[in-house]
Amino acid sequence: MPHTQTIYSWNVNGVRAVAARGQLAWLHERGADVLALQETKTHPDKLSAALHRPDGYHSEWCAGDVAHYCGVATFSRQQPLAVTRGLGHPLFDTEGRVLVTTFPQFTLYNIYFPSGSSGPERVAHKLAFYAHFLDVIRPRLAAGERIVVLGDVNTAYAPIDLARWRENAKTSGFLPEERAALGEFFAAGLVDSFRHHRPDTAAYSWWSQRSGARERNIGWRLDYIFVSENLRDAIVDAAIHPDIVGSDHCPVSVTLRLPDEPS
């Protein structure tokens, strides 16, 4: 029989600070089957047992070579069948940005994609990261694997995805080359679950911490959950959760109706 799974993704901008304020409690309250975190900014050895492995969940962490920078973690009710860290390229795997967990129903890529905000060299690195990710994912999609890719992509794709797109036409995160590179995700066969389910909804997942941007809802949609084409019809719901605070980002989610047989 089919069953549903709800998957959340959240750039927490420091997991210990968020946890200390009790802002991970909704993990249980909302019945998350999977919670993927980005920008954890810690090594799992530095965490309490309760945070390292929340009650009722299996946990996997990927930390970078530099302390207090980047990092991702995935909490899941199911124990993964396999876990991989990184994309298999030394240029992209030192910062702790990629955690891949394989479950019977799908393989989940939890990724904190690079930002290009510090200048042209970093934009080039970001675009190279995108391209290498696509090199990794395309053959898996072509083979018919069921795949979920989520995380902070650091690009708003279309004008509907940020409040002030005209003013930001030359700002990293909305540069033409970044948007074109994100468009290659769709060409490869990844479906933007939020835009598929809510094609005309303007909603944001990140706000500048200056000038009361969040209170005025002057934001960007930088956080995505993509699914492979063979999961498009499994999308039951996709949402953004601005009521969950504690970071400059808020969580995003997708609910999938999945078959019981393995992928």
Rank of each mutant, 00 (worst) to 15 (best):
I235L: 05
A156V: 06
V66N: 10
L108I: 09
E229P: 13
F75W: 11
H58W: 13
R257Y: 10
N154A: 02
H196A: 09
V148L: 04
S118G: 06
L37W: 10
E29M: 14
S208G: 12
G144D: 10
W207T: 06
G173D: 03
G64R: 00
V236R: 13
L150I: 02
L175K: 04
V66E: 11
V100E: 12
G56R: 03
W207K: 08
P262Y: 03
E178K: 01
H3G: 08
D200R: 07
L150S: 00
G189H: 02
V252W: 00
T94K: 11
L47G: 13
R16P: 15
P90A: 01
A50N: 13
A20P: 07
T155V: 15
R216S: 05
V98N: 03
H125R: 07
S193L: 08
A19Y: 14
M1D: 09
W206Y: 12
A158L: 13
L47H: 12
T171V: 13
Y109V: 04
A63R: 02
P262W: 02
H58E: 11
Q105N: 01
E167Q: 14
H132C: 10
L47M: 15
C250A: 04
K46D: 14
F106P: 14
A202S: 04
D161C: 03
R138P: 15
W26L: 08
G56W: 07
A36C: 14
G86E: 05
L99I: 12
H43S: 14
N217W: 03
P120M: 02
L108V: 09
H68R: 10
A128T: 11
L256I: 11
G183P: 10
R146Q: 11
G88T: 12
R216I: 07
D152C: 05
C70T: 06
A73L: 12
C70W: 02
R221I: 01
A19W: 12
D200F: 08
V12A: 02
A73V: 15
S263V: 13
G31H: 04
E178I: 02
P262M: 01
N168I: 09
A234G: 02
S118C: 01
R216T: 01
V15E: 09
V227S: 03
R122G: 05
D65Y: 09
L87T: 03
E261K: 10
P159C: 01
V15N: 08
N217S: 02
A36Q: 10
T6S: 07
L87P: 15
G183D: 05
Q5G: 05
D161I: 06
V254F: 12
W206L: 08
V254T: 10
A181H: 00
Q5H: 00
D152R: 06
T74R: 02
R138N: 08
A169H: 05
G144K: 09
A82P: 08
P259Y: 04
D152M: 00
P139A: 03
Q38T: 07
E229W: 11
I218P: 07
Y8N: 01
A188W: 12
S172N: 00
A20S: 07
H58P: 15
P80K: 01
P44W: 06
P159D: 00
T201S: 05
A203G: 11
I225T: 04
T155G: 06
H241L: 15
D93R: 03
L108N: 10
Y224Q: 02
H132P: 11
S211I: 07
F186S: 04
A163F: 14
T40V: 13
D223A: 02
V136P: 15
L51F: 08
D93L: 11
E184M: 09
K170G: 10
A187S: 14
V149I: 01
